[in-house]
Amino acid sequence: MTTVDSLSAKDLLGIEPLSRDEIQLILDTARTLSDVAKHPIKKVPALRGRTMVNLFYEASTRTRTSFELAAVRLSADVVNINVQASSVVKGETLLDTARTLEAMTVDFIVMRHGSSGAPHMLARNLKASVINAGDGQHEHPTQALLDLYTVREKLGSIEGKTITLIGDIQHSRVARSDLIAFTKMGAKVRFCGPPTLLSADFGALGAEVHHDLKSALTGADVVYVLRLQFERHRMGLMPSVKAYTQQYAITSERVKWAKPGALVMHPGPMNRGVEIAPEVADGPTSVIVDQVANGIAVRMAVLYLLEAGRTKRAAAGGVS
């Protein structure tokens, strides 16, 4: 018997506000809901009559599509707001946009925004449930949830495992969410990258900070490669892309430094041949494709459990 049966908050803004039980609940629910994809009719009516808006201020076909499929499999209606084409570029504030959406009686707003905390601001001003699909360099909670799910599916458990994330930790919302998620579930998280892309202060946030790849990979159960943004060189944060690759790219030789059978993960999209060698990305222990598939089930679970929580609060007489 789980101790919780819905999400307590109106929104999913990050991993940080989630309890360990809530994370467990999302993963268990996702496990069950992954079956829907195997049904002859790949949808259930749970969220019939509900509307979800994909509000993406940064392009991300992958995440947007994943949320869209999750909503469709739960029978919710989906509206994609193309930010470039809408009034948001013409000086409309985020709050204006929020109020417009509110007037359209939207139930879920899935938001991707380049500014850390933007979904938090939206959530404070809306009755709808806001789901953070990546805010600036802050969090990307559903990515971390699907990463947890994938590791649990492949390794049987998360507790006691060692996850090493390699790359531009400093500017990565995936790294932050994974750090909180995996440590909450009892795993050990190592960060590895050059000092300009990995502040020692991450130690205070619970990560093991490594600048040497071999020591970071030794004993790791998961080798998690982050995407490298080439503009970091222009900003003076790495001597050159080539120098980065020489020191930190995950090759088939280097992946052997980790535990035998260690999983290889990447949040996508990959720069093949830069941060990850093609033969590693496509190798036998790569679960990069599974991550994508698992993303849908995890997002279904999030949508469903937010709805369950909201209905429950409404029944208890609370304001939603």
Binding site: D5, L33, V44, A46, T311, K312
Partner: peptide, 20 residues
């Protein structure tokens, strides 16, 4: 047969889906 996802009263009782 789990009927949780087909109910019209999500959240009002034990509403966690179980595998069918």
């Amino acid at each position: 047969l789990d009927i949780t996802m087909y109910r019209d009263d999500i959240g009002s009782r034990a509403s966690l889906p179980k595998p069918s």
